[in-house]
Deep mutational scan, measured.
Amino acid sequence: NKFNKELQWATWEILNLPNLNEEQVKAFIDSLRDDPSQSANLLAEAKKLNDAQA
């Protein structure tokens, strides 16, 4: 389904953001699992944090 694909994509993207530490990655992945419908928003937040920590 749509959420499953978005969840998989967001998870992959977050795992590959180079500037997030392990705790941050875990927190984003946990949030994705808690509410897959928020995957686009969570991915945007993760990318923003990744850029800020570059």
Rank of each mutant, 00 (worst) to 15 (best):
N4T: 03
V25R: 15
S37M: 09
V25T: 12
K26N: 06
W12K: 09
S31V: 09
D30V: 10
L42Y: 08
L49P: 00
N21W: 08
A27L: 11
L17I: 01
R33E: 10
P36M: 10
Q8T: 05
S31M: 14
L42P: 00
Q8G: 04
L32E: 00
A54W: 10
N19L: 05
L42K: 06
K48R: 13
Q24E: 04
D51W: 09
F3W: 08
K26W: 07
L43Y: 08
A10D: 03
N16L: 04
F28E: 00
E13H: 10
L49F: 06
R33N: 14
N41A: 05
K26F: 10
L17D: 00
Q38M: 08
N41M: 08
P18Q: 14
L49G: 01
I14W: 01
F28D: 00
K26D: 04
L17V: 00
S31Y: 13
S31D: 10
L7I: 09
D35W: 05
D34G: 14
W12T: 15
F28Y: 05
P36E: 04
N21T: 12
A46R: 00
L32M: 14
N16S: 10
N21I: 11
A52P: 02
D30M: 12
I14D: 02
L42H: 05
N1W: 00
Q53S: 08
A44M: 11
D51P: 01
K47M: 15
D30L: 14
I29Q: 04
L42S: 03
K48D: 06
L17Q: 04
W9A: 14
N21G: 11
N16P: 01
N4P: 03
D35E: 08
P18K: 09
F3G: 10
I29P: 00
L43A: 05
N41W: 11
K48G: 07
L7S: 05
A54P: 07
Q24Y: 02
E23V: 11
E22L: 10
L15P: 02
F28T: 01
D51E: 12
L43W: 05
K2F: 10
Q38V: 06
A52S: 10
A54T: 12
K5I: 07
D30E: 14
N50G: 02
Q53V: 11
N1I: 06
E22Y: 09
I29L: 14
K26Y: 10
L15R: 14
P36T: 04
L20Y: 00
A40Y: 14
K48M: 09
K47D: 02
K5E: 15
A40I: 10
N16E: 06
Q53P: 04
A46M: 01
E23P: 08
Q53M: 13
K26R: 06
S39G: 07
A46Q: 00
L43E: 02
L7G: 04
L32A: 06
N16W: 03
N21M: 12
F28L: 06
K2H: 15
A27I: 13
L49R: 05
K47W: 09
E45S: 07
E45F: 07
A44N: 12
W9T: 08
N19Q: 05
N1K: 01
L7H: 06
K2E: 15
Q38D: 13
Q53I: 13
N4F: 07
D35Q: 08
N19G: 06
E23I: 11
N16M: 10
L42G: 01
R33G: 08
N21L: 09
A54F: 08
D34Q: 11
Q24K: 02
K47P: 00
A44R: 08
D35T: 07
K26L: 13
D35A: 10
N4V: 04
A40Q: 13
D34L: 09
Q38I: 11
